[in-house]
Design a protein around this nucleic acid. Sequence first.
DNA 1: CAGTGGTCTAGACCACACT
DNA 2: GTGTGGTCTAGACCACTGT
Lengths: 238, 238
Amino acid sequence: MTKIPEYRKIYSELKREIKRGTYSPGMFLPTETELENMFGVSRTTIRKAISLLVLEGFISVQQGRGTEVQEVSTSQRLNQITSFSETLSQKGYIVTTRGFYLEHIPAPAFVREALGLEKDCTVHHLQRVQCADGRPICIMENYISAHIIPDFEIRNSNFVSLYELLEHEYNLVLREAVERITAIGASFTESQILLVPSGTPLLFSKRITYCDKGPFEYVINKVLAEQYEYAIHLSGRA
Amino acid sequence: MTKIPEYRKIYSELKREIKRGTYSPGMFLPTETELENMFGVSRTTIRKAISLLVLEGFISVQQGRGTEVQEVSTSQRLNQITSFSETLSQKGYIVTTRGFYLEHIPAPAFVREALGLEKDCTVHHLQRVQCADGRPICIMENYISAHIIPDFEIRNSNFVSLYELLEHEYNLVLREAVERITAIGASFTESQILLVPSGTPLLFSKRITYCDKGPFEYVINKVLAEQYEYAIHLSGRA
DNA sequence: CAGTGGTCTAGACCACACT
DNA sequence: GTGTGGTCTAGACCACTGT
């Protein structure tokens, strides 16, 4: 199993506490010296953890003053890499996974091209149906490069968010992603899975996700449009 | 005089060398130990400088391998504010406007809410059909706040890009926009306008655009999905 | 294997914000 | 002044990539 650095654990721990409300917006985190003692590590390690949280906008630091927990406004969170299930959870749905199939296959041509893989590369192909409040809402296929995550297995079939799994179990850092979105009418098969008439409009998205080691995942999503919308933040002008 | 930290000088120095071509894309920077000696500082300082360059995308680091100078270009033009017609032009289509109707009306409730307008505010309501290579592909409605652009008139009915017009004729500066995208099936009316069977999947987007004076425009687009897709760039992770 | 970057320590001094 | 974060050192050991 992968070794998780101290600063990463502390970062996760602090993030959890912020999300839980132990530290709420406007409050200050303990000082660096206090955190040193709390976690029993050196200041460098604490500072590295804190810098991650700053990068993600959870806290802001000011010399001589302290580190303040920020209001995470929704609009700031746009265009961040979020899994489908995370977005749904945020909207208050109870998210579950219905179907579930994992296989290890030679990368299909379209995946090879998207991820820049050589011939004969293996990918983990994960198929799922995501449900919101018990209702099927999304058909999801992930192709994960075995080159970057060699030993991918799902131990607990009840997991929901793939990204959380990858981050915590495999210590993966998601850097960026490019997503292309269009609409299609549900095919017969899709309509059967999602329990809607065929031809029902679906959002059809293809995403390449990059981690620190390069492109590692190709995702295909088909989402019931009636239940879902993408929010995008645009800024500036060429 | 301001005190400039060592790591900042080193960062600037390295960036200058990269821009000048001393270190060009594909090449590797000296190792951390070498840089330590070159600049006569500790490794921490070097690493801090390097981390800044990584953050800005100039270089990428890989454990056990080295720090490689990156190609800066890439398609970072994603998530900029672009009008529909501009995007289509970029893809090589010839864009024309077919239908065209401008009226000045009291802002409907959903527009008032979106733009934060008072009761009795007027908006310019512009309706158009955009064609790509002569084929209708998008039904477009703009609601432009009369508060910000009081004297909006279209002099030349052959104009194509609304944003270009606003920028050049009205000296407007577009700051940011939030767009929400989902999919619908074409209604009878929409199917007639776009010359497709009713029920054909359309991308349905609603956008609020902000200029330097606040929100000024609400746009509703219905696009033939078959001919169009949204590309989104996501970065970072909460 | 050697050489690279990744993590971590224990301690020092500096710059800034509060009161 | 006191206490906060900001910079920096010298050295240690780990983890990965290459040969």
